[in-house]
Amino acid sequence: MEDRLLVSAPPHVRGGDDTQSIMLRVIIALTPALLVGFWRFGLPTLMITAVSVGSCVFFEWGYRRLARKSCTLGDYSAVVTGLLLSMTLSPAVPLWLPLIGGFFAIVVVKQLYGGLGKNFMNPALAARCFLFSWAALMNSWVSPRGVDAVSSATPLSVMKGMALPAESPMDCFLGLRAGCIGEISAAALLLGGAYLLLTKVIRPHIPLSYLLTVAVLTFLFPRGNERLTWMLYQLLSGGLLLGAVFMATDYVTSPGTDRGRVLYGIGCGVITVVIRYFGSYPEGVSFSILIMNLLVWLLDKWTTPRAFGYKKEANT
């Protein structure tokens, strides 16, 4: 099972854990953020998550069976994809949306290329971007429980107009804001991230360089607002933390060297800010990670320490 994860150029500095236990840890780490989502948005989000996970698991099973390949449900990667996908959806989406998303993530993005470890793009994120086809459904927000906001606009869409959102930074930190199911509480996401770091499932390079880049850029260009506050809001809003901790760190679609990871994080950060500032989408996290997914081979090529004459050998 281990060799399915190794697709990048050597060296492969990874623990001796198998995919199953890594995925289980990711599921544990996602739990706090999901619980905050369930608590704030109520039953519908539970249904969305269930459909999303169910759809991913079903299509993984169905495809492998149809293609007469071994069953890979045991590695729990489909469950993780389903959870991640549902976390990036608005709590107001109809249930057929995560169903389609699960199909796209598992069949098109992952299994067509041979399954876990062979795909070049993050399945959950690609599916989320694909679901933007139904833009009106994806962009209808609801206010979380315990917030009597007049409008249910997300902080990010307010900041698109270069203004500061109505919520306090503390609200954003705790999850008292409109947004996608799994992204609203920075505290819960950080808790999950800390768990992943402590159990050595992820390394700090990507999240740190990603968040730092966004912090520096938004601090330098506050668009007429108070620098520090603007920076804080930018860091706490949208799917930035969810993306930086859980999406960008996906083994298969991120570089295999530490230097490559730092560059990858910086690239994600720059593109995120560019799309947030100048693009037509309010959020740039998913697209920036997908775009950097396309550059992983380049980062690996650049940053892999290589013995003299190695390339020639590999080519012959």
Partner: peptide
């Protein structure tokens, strides 16, 4: 049209 997959 709102139910159609506009990206297609």
């Amino acid at each position: 049209a709102g139910y159609a997959c506009s990206y297609l």
